[in-house]
C-alpha cells in the first residue's frame, strides 16, 4: 500500500488540492487515517482544525478506519419507495452487522448514502462506488460473492 505521505505530497502544489489529496488517500486505504489528516494540515500549511474540518464536512470521506469494501445503500426518496429498507435488512442479515458497522474480518462496511445518480433502476447500492441496480434481497448474496 502506498504511504499516505507520498500520496498527499503529490498534491502539494495543486491550488485547493487537499480534497483531491483526500480522495487519493481514500482510494488507497478506503478511509482517511487520522495521521493523514494531520499530515495534510502540514503539507497544505493550514491549522489541523481546518484540515479536520474539511475531511469531516464531506460524507464521502471517512476519517478513521473502516472496511476494505464500502457498501452504500441509497435511501433517497426514489430508492426509499422502491424498497431500500428490504435491501438494508438483507445486507445486515447476510453480513451479520448493522448499518454503520464493519464486519469483524474488516472486509465490509455498511453505510447509508443519498442519491447516487442511478435512479433509473431503483433501489441502488454501490460497492466501492460501483453501482448495482434494481437490487433485491435475493440478489445480495451473488453481489457480495464478487468481493469475498
Amino acid at each position: 500500500m502506498a504511504d499516505y505521505r507520498e500520496i498527499i505530497g503529490t498534491y502539494k502544489e495543486v491550488p485547493g488540492g487537499i480534497i483531491e489529496a483526500y480522495h487519493a488517500v481514500q482510494n488507497e486505504y478506503s478511509y482517511i487515517p487520522e495521521d493523514a489528516v494531520d499530515y495534510a494540515a502540514q503539507i497544505f500549511n493550514i491549522p489541523k482544525a481546518k484540515a479536520y474540518g474539511v475531511a469531516t464536512f464531506y460524507s464521502y470521506f471517512k476519517v478513521g478506519s473502516r472496511g476494505k469494501n464500502v457498501i452504500r445503500i441509497c435511501e433517497s426518496a426514489p430508492c426509499h419507495i422502491a424498497g431500500a429498507d428490504k435491501v438494508v435488512a438483507a445486507l445486515e442479515k447476510e453480513l451479520g452487522i448493522k448499518m454503520g458497522e464493519t464486519t469483524s474480518d474488516g472486509k465490509f462496511t455498511l453505510e447509508f448514502a443519498e442519491c447516487v445518480g442511478q435512479c433509473q433502476a431503483t433501489p441502488v447500492i454501490t460497492i466501492n462506488s460501483k453501482p448495482y441496480e434494481d437490487v433485491t434481497a435475493e440478489k445480495i448474496a451473488a453481489i457480495l460473492a464478487e468481493y469475498k
Binding site: 491550488p15 485547493g16 488540492g17 487537499i18 480534497i19 483531491e20 483526500y22 480522495h23 497544505f44 481546518k50 474539511v54 464536512f57 464531506y58 460524507s59 464521502y60 470521506f61 448514502a113 443519498e114
Partner: peptide, 22 residues
C-alpha cells in the same frame, strides 16, 4: 475536480469554496 458527497456543494458559491479546498 471531484466533489465528495455534499449536496450543498451544488450551490455555486459552496462549490467554489470546495474547489478552493475548503
Amino acid at each position: 475536480r471531484m466533489g465528495a458527497g455534499a449536496y450543498v456543494c451544488g450551490e455555486e458559491s459552496a462549490l467554489i469554496e470546495s474547489i478552493e479546498g475548503k
